Simulated assay, not measured.
Amino acid sequence: MNLLFICTENRLRSPTAESVFSEYEGFVAIGCGTNADAATPLSGDLIEWADVIFVMEQSHKSKATKKYSALLKGKRLICLAIADNYQCMQPELVLLLKQKVAMHIHLN
């Protein structure tokens, strides 16, 4: 299953999610950001690739929907409501991601 994680700059939250969920068998995870200067910017190709799309904040969902509404039809787009209060791979962020994502998909 292909999981796409979206934050703002793809420097803290979504790279953490990419690292954490890439470790699970049967999952491929990619992180990206809504800003044009993000390490990996959100693109139509990433939307098409993803089976499930997780955004960290409602603003990310709004930006993705505004720009890629046609590509998002039929896709699961889930807001995790995780604020930009964590460092990359911070243990509290890892735990929060695991808890919130597990509410939406079965992790092995």
Results as ranks from 00 to 15, higher is better:
K98L: 04
S19A: 10
I6L: 13
L77M: 13
I47G: 01
P91T: 01
A38M: 10
L95K: 09
D84H: 06
S19W: 04
V101Q: 00
K67W: 05
M56N: 08
L42H: 04
L12M: 13
A39F: 08
I47R: 01
L12T: 07
S59H: 10
G26L: 11
H106N: 00
P41D: 08
E57P: 07
V55A: 15
F54Y: 12
L72D: 08
L12D: 01
G74N: 15
L93K: 13
Q87G: 15
L71H: 07
G74P: 02
G74W: 07
V55N: 09
A39K: 14
K67C: 06
S19L: 04
D45V: 07
Q99N: 05
P15S: 08
L93C: 10
H104D: 02
K66S: 14
C32T: 09
I105H: 00
I30W: 01
S19V: 08
E92D: 15
Y68M: 10
V94W: 00
I6C: 09
L12E: 03
A50W: 01
A83K: 13
S22N: 15
K73C: 07
L93V: 11
R11P: 02
K63C: 12
P15Q: 15
A36W: 00
L80Q: 12
L77Q: 05
W49F: 08
E9A: 15
A50Q: 08
I78S: 04
V55L: 10
K67P: 03
T34P: 03
A29E: 02
T40I: 15
C88L: 12
E18Q: 15
T65H: 07
M1Y: 11
G33H: 08
T65D: 11
K100Q: 03
S22E: 05
E18W: 03
E9P: 01
